[in-house]
Design a protein around this nucleic acid. Structure first.
Length: 270
DNA sequence: ACCCAGGCATTGG
DNA sequence: CCAATGCATGGG
């Protein structure tokens, strides 16, 4: 039995668009109409099935991980009811009905991913990140497990610059790998406390902290106001908006879902 | 040969 | 406190 029933509505195609939009992500690999990821050292393949998903293998270990990865824990109904009060957001949620933002299940992967995406295009970020994964990740059949902090910690700066990291970014990644926070403890903190802890680490500013809240911790009110993509998406759908951070209040307490719908809407809607 | 792209630390006023 | 600067890569 490999059928996983999912809360409705759910649109696998829209929800996984992110894994195809910017190039290859070797740790979350789109391959032959399915998403591949290593869970507990084992490669899992997820593809659409009528009324749900086909997950192989599906067992007590992989099911919770897959639910997390696919953002199935997001409760869309209250957000959609909220969105109906906003003509612009209503149009987007109606068009993207069943979109659930995928999450980054591994905190180290989430933060290293942020470093790679600082300043450069996402295309460029994905290319550099995939070279890191190919070189230091753990290969499965098609996909790789993202490199562990332990694996990265003993590297030299040149090992990372040779993959396309700047010297600064190499320092950030090595610093994180050698002195990672207590992830369990971090996840128990309130949003603002998490941000303070992330920002205290060299190389991680507010933008990285906001995305950590949004994509790893799935915090409902996370709003990456400094994100260039989000700024452009808000400007497109709400030309009257000036201060993006203040504008997020209008979506309270659904800032995270709103940000994801705006970003995906900007990419997928004409 | 430029220029920009889902930031950040560093330096100087 | 704010403005200017360097950073490496991929795509236009």
């Amino acid at each position: 039995m490999t059928f996983l029933s999912v809360p409705q509505p759910y649109d696998f195609e829209v929800s996984t668009e992110r894994f195809r939009a910017f190039g290859i992500d070797l740790a979350n690999l789109w391959h032959e109409d399915g998403l591949h990821r290593v869970v507990d050292g084992l490669e899992v393949r997820i593809e659409a099935a009528s009324g749900g998903l086909d997950v192989q293998p599906l067992d007590a270990a992989t099911e919770p991980a897959v639910r997390t990865l696919l953002g199935l824990e997001f409760d869309l109904d209250p957000f959609y009811r909220f969105a109906h009060g906003d003509p612009v957001l209503r149009l987007i949620t109606d068009s993207l009905s069943g979109f659930r933002p995928p999450l980054a299940p591994d905190p180290f992967e989430a933060l290293v991913g942020s470093v790679t995406a600082q300043q450069v295009s996402l295309q460029s970020a994905f290319a550099v990140r995939s070279r890191l994964i190919a070189r230091y990740g753990e290969p499965a059949e098609h996909v790789y497990a993202f490199p562990t902090p332990e694996r990265i910690a003993h590297l030299r700066e040149e090992d990372l610059t040779s993959l396309g990291f700047s010297r600064r970014k190499s320092e950030y990644v090595l610093g994180l790998a050698r002195n990672p926070p207590d992830w369990e403890e971090l996840s128990a903190l309130a949003d603002e406390e998490v941000k303070l802890r992330i920002v205290s680490m060299r190389g991680f500013g507010e933008w990285s902290a906001d995305w950590f809240l949004a994509r790893h911790l799935a915090r409902a009110r996370a709003w990456p106001a400094g994100d260039l993509g989000l700024v452009k998406a808000v400007a497109r759908f709400y030309p009257e908006a000036t201060d993006i951070r203040a504008f997020g209040e209008r979506f309270d307490p659904f800032q995270n879902l709103a940000a994801h719908y705006l970003l995906t809407g900007a990419r997928m809607l004409t």
